[in-house]
Design a protein around this nucleic acid. Sequence first.
DNA 1: ACCTGAACACCGTTCAAGT
DNA 2: ACCTGAACACCGTTCAAGT
Lengths: 240, 240
Amino acid sequence: MKPRTRNGQDLLTPAAVVDRALMLADAEGLGAVTIRRLAHELDVTPMALYWHFASKEELLDAMADGLLTEMLAIAGPVETVPAGPWRQQLAALLDAQCTVLRAHPSVAPLVWTRNNLSDAALRLTERMLAVLRRAGFSPTDATRIARRAARMTTALVAVRAQFVDGDGDPDRVRDRLSALPIDEFPRVVEAAVALSGCDGPDEHYGLELVLAGIEAEAARLTPFSEPNPPPTPDRAPPQP
Amino acid sequence: MKPRTRNGQDLLTPAAVVDRALMLADAEGLGAVTIRRLAHELDVTPMALYWHFASKEELLDAMADGLLTEMLAIAGPVETVPAGPWRQQLAALLDAQCTVLRAHPSVAPLVWTRNNLSDAALRLTERMLAVLRRAGFSPTDATRIARRAARMTTALVAVRAQFVDGDGDPDRVRDRLSALPIDEFPRVVEAAVALSGCDGPDEHYGLELVLAGIEAEAARLTPFSEPNPPPTPDRAPPQP
DNA sequence: ACCTGAACACCGTTCAAGT
DNA sequence: ACCTGAACACCGTTCAAGT
């Protein structure tokens, strides 16, 4: 099935390069994704990659788009969106994004930061907007919220991925915090244990925070409150 | 006032290096902050910097800490924290962070991603925790929320800073979006104008979203609701 | 069409040496 | 104590050349 050249060598395809790049990023971080390193991994000259990608930037774009495509696969086709309350639909969409991002944490910073007019990006945007419009938001507000929600989700994962802990093991950190002057840092000392622990896999917690914010926004903007949103017709202006 | 060596040359100090590095980052992005470039800017050999910083990583840490120090200066001493409702106090703290981050957007990704046990970091943490504890959160919850809030704030600015727009001017983007098949992308087409505009300086909007989320969390966790939080004594367990 | 080879202007960092 | 100089193993990218 793979294309082969006459001397038995596998041909290089953009998709194969992106796959390899994602694997490299997952294994050793985005910093390891280097034109030269990647070429070596693919048994090819560095400059070979420049036939398929105009620049490294373009390769990074393709990697980001790879994640968007994965998200789309998880989210399923448009018709898949269940008829439940919009909060759940929104949560499901954000959860799908979160799942993919967590699988490729070092690539997360690249997602939704380049402007994505790719097919996958547009389809994901369409789904987000559909849910928010159904929730009663105007196109403008839906856009702002969709953008915020998507970026916040990536940020939640990305920030955690970029985290480097310089000061070694948690026990030493806790001890240092506990030893602080209690009159100057009463709250820090009190929370030394919590502060020294890494915060666990709770992007979920962060997502809930974002969702709660959106819900509060929704309550402020729309006259009704869930459940049973009024019958907002698909394209016509709101009810008379 | 500046230290000088006998041949009339300014002596290199860590603070001077960090200042210069921040200026460089603000002017040309974090990517321009290079040991060699920075050394050139300071009229010094690249290796001179290695006397003051063990590695580039350590220099980046120092830059991040520079921002934390600026935040602390804006936030003022602990006693400055007004007696108002905790939402406002929290908003003020996050606003201060946002202000500083917006002044150095390209450095934002570095803030709160290395573990900060520096003086500035600890003092900022103390303030955050104090506000959240007064709001009725337990030390553990206060820690989680403080972390989330701080990271989200930096993420809001950082993601925007990392944004690279590849597809040129907004008009062309809008046209492309409007030209999409309307049966496949009804919501995108509908929101073409909103989607093609860059989203303006509304980290403020994002902050409100975060705050709304925290308030919702607070309402869920504490039996009372603002204003007039119960007299939570400073260190003793909650009221009988 | 697809890939190689040599070359250029950059990186961070080490190690020995100067003052 | 504070800085220089030469060197090493890396970068992304261009340009001419091979098949």
